[in-house]
Nucleic acid binder design. Structure first.
Lengths: 229, 229
DNA sequence: TCAAAAGTGTTCTTGATACACCCATGC
DNA sequence: GCATGGGTGTATCAAGAACACTTTTGA
């Protein structure tokens, strides 16, 4: 059933930059394209926006369909509207970025998409369309936002050690942080709940486990508190 | 000449939140709608994106056509993609915000649009569509961004006094700032060039005029400098 | 007993805040 | 000469940065 309009219309898509964190490395989830154009090339998960869903819903649906990921942190990033970004026709894409707890999700997702794979952000393959631009924009946003919003926790398991948290920040910000100062600062905010358990991993002293206290954060935020690292 | 597509498509528009600053007041430029829906209501300037222009270009074109404003600071804000934001049909809108030097532009713009008018942000009329949401988002963005990027200068004439600059920040941030501390901080960045002229307005001591040194800022930025107020 | 990561305080420096008076001008 | 906004310096306090050793565990 064809649809006709008085004026020509751009197609509208969503694309998702999915970040994960694993073993001190920041990673991105890419999908190998099975169809032209850019067949065989790696690309961001995404697809067309349907009329009966919001743009946000489209992003969640495509993420779920192409990578199996659900209930993840997802936020709109930027809209890419260059004329020739898709060689076939005019396509405007609303980009999102997602943060997933990599340890709690299967390595490549329960996906019906042919091929999904995590890549270290420092070792990315060539990407289809303008997806390299989108990814760079997402990285800049993540680097900026992680410093003044407690979104880093979205990349860690619910229970984590202070060292894991520090390594996450070091990976995202590409900087070395002082262990004592980092702990002092993050603990002084009172947003980390120490758990009774300890992590026992390897031939070392076991580390205290914490979880992020989201309720306390939203209560503090209302009173004007600002997370800042 | 009708255009036919296999799947139905949303229409794509741009909307612009235009900020100005005048006499210690932050203002927004609105347009009175001449057509249904929301006929007679105030709305943000904006319109449909054409296939032969980028989304950014569409924003600039609509701004020029509806308000007469050209060569202003313009930055993408957010894309609004709720299903029923336009009662006629599915319309997704990429919102922008603009900062204009109000003193250097005519009060209501050399506009072909019937009716354009500046409103104080504290005294806004009811707005068409979801434009109140868009405007609120733009205000939040402006409040956030003005603190860590030197965009406030886009709202002032090229030559300005320190008091004018301070009043601008006080209006945007809705806070009172200490005069001495403000001057110390802003001058210590070395981004304001004192001019030889002085402002002579009223029965007071004339104030030193400055201009923002954009070249110096971009040079410093490359070396890792961060503007922050 | 060794390797490997966990944990812990103090000093110094820097930047933020608070605060009050004289200056130049037009009327 | 007075009203109005322009312009200036210091003392205090809080937060950030730099820095090294002991503890606990498994192998």
């Amino acid at each position: 059933m064809p649809h006709t309009y008085e004026y020509p219309r751009a197609a509208l898509t969503v694309d998702c930059v999915v970040f994960g964190f694993d073993e001190a490395e920041l990673k991105v989830l890419l999908i190998r394209r099975g169809l032209a154009p850019f067949k065989g090339k790696w690309a961001l998960p995404g697809g067309f926006v349907r009329l009966e869903e919001t743009v946000d819903e489209a992003a969640r649906r495509e993420l779920s369909e192409e990578t199996g990921l659900k209930d993840v942190f997802l936020e709109q990033l930027y809209t890419f509207g260059a004329i020739d970004r898709d060689p076939r026709e005019r396509v405007v894409s609303v980009a999102y970025y997602a943060l997933v707890k990599l340890a709690e999700h299967p390595a490549t997702g329960a996906s019906d998409a042919s091929d999904a794979q995590w890549f270290t952000v420092a070792e990315l393959p060539a990407l289809a369309f303008d997806h390299a631009d989108i990814l760079r924009t997402a990285l800049e946003r993540l680097r900026g936002k992680v410093r003044y919003e407690p979104i880093g926790f979205e990349l860690l398991p619910q229970k984590f050690t202070l060292s894991e948290l520090q390594h996450l920040y070091e990976a995202v910000l590409q900087a070395n942080l002082d262990k004592r100062n980092f702990r002092k600062k993050i603990l002084s905010m009172g947003l980390l709940l120490p758990l009774k358990e300890q992590a026992r991993t390897g031939a070392h002293r076991p580390a205290q486990l914490f979880r992020f206290d989201a309720k306390k954060y939203s209560a503090l935020k209302k009173r004007g508190f600002n997370f800042e690292l």
